[in-house]
């Protein structure tokens, strides 16, 4: 425990702040029923468009649904977006980047062209275009993001592997006749993983921004699913009279994004990753 206590004290402030924010959101996401005071989908025609008050700290919407409960319930979907939209790209990108960076050659040349091509398409536009093909919805959104997103991980991994490939200990392992699989997994992967892990945090923040944007446009999560972007879209027509329907879910997005960014910054500090 002392080691943990020591690590905690040495940890960068941003890391601590990030952990606290994400932990709070994770509790909301894992057990919304325990914290949320109301059923997020329950209509209450006796309390329509109520401003924030003691029984409804975040107010209610045009159907009398409790905004606090809906914001908490949406955390489940949005954190799910953060993970599901990035995990596939992380794994695929890491593998491709590792192989391309280590073996180089034709595959690397092809990969280079692919990166050039992918960055030419505005990410959101490409994702929207793919969603247009597949049809709106969360799972199609994951596919659309994944089709493009892995490239960025692979690019990062490739650069890191290229540097490591020339390092003495890798050459030594080669001279000792270690099998390539062992060199790749034991010697290169652990050392190349740090920048990609830090980027993963940033990417989760981006995924939430992207996911809620698509939700807002009606291309991501579909109502009545409580998702922060969807909640904001629901409330936008009432913004002038009932700002709370929109403002609180939006604040949740900002908070969540900051949580991931701060955590990522702290991690970068801790792992000494340059960005």
């Amino acid at each position: 425990m002392t080691a943990v206590a020591l690590a905690w004290r040495r940890a960068p402030v941003s890391l601590v702040a990030g952990v606290v924010i994400l932990a709070a959101l994770a509790v909301c996401a894992l057990a919304p029923g325990l914290i949320a005071p109301y059923d997020p989908l329950a209509f209450d025609y006796g309390a329509l468009l109520q401003p924030p008050s003691a029984p409804h700290p975040f107010g209610t919407d045009q159907f009398g649904r409790d905004i606090l409960s809906r914001t908490i319930a949406a955390a489940t979907v949005d954190l799910q977006i953060a993970i599901f939209a990035t995990l596939g790209p992380l794994v695929i990108g890491a593998i491709v980047g590792l192989l391309v960076g280590y073996y180089g050659g034709l595959a690397d040349a092809v990969f280079g062209r692919l990166v050039d091509l992918v960055v030419t398409f505005p990410f959101l536009v490409l994702v929207i275009a793919i969603v247009a093909v597949l049809g709106p919805g969360l799972s199609n959104m994951y596919i659309a993001i994944g089709v493009v997103g892995w490239v960025f991980y692979a690019r990062l991994m490739r650069a890191e592997v290229m540097v490591l490939r020339g390092q003495d200990y890798v050459s030594a392992a080669k001279v000792l006749g270690y099998p390539e699989r062992r060199i790749l997994l034991r010697h290169i992967l652990p050392n190349a993983a740090r920048p990609i892990l830090v980027y993963w945090m940033t990417d989760m923040a981006l995924a939430i921004l992207l996911g809620s944007s698509l939700g807002y446009l009606g291309l991501g999560a579909q109502p009545p699913t409580a998702e922060w972007g969807v909640l904001i879209a629901d409330g936008k027509n009432f913004f002038s009279q009932a700002w709370w329907i929109t403002v609180f879910p939006g604040a949740a997005i900002v908070l969540c994004g900051m949580g991931f960014s701060l955590f990522g910054d702290g991690l970068a500090d801790l792992m000494d990753v340059r960005r």
């Binding site: 921004l209 900051m258 960014s261």
Partner: peptide
């Protein structure tokens, strides 16, 4: 940092 974490549609609506 807050600006970086704020979705465009949210800032726009406000």
């Amino acid at each position: 940092q807050v600006g970086l974490s704020s979705p465009v549609f949210y800032v726009g609506l406000i």
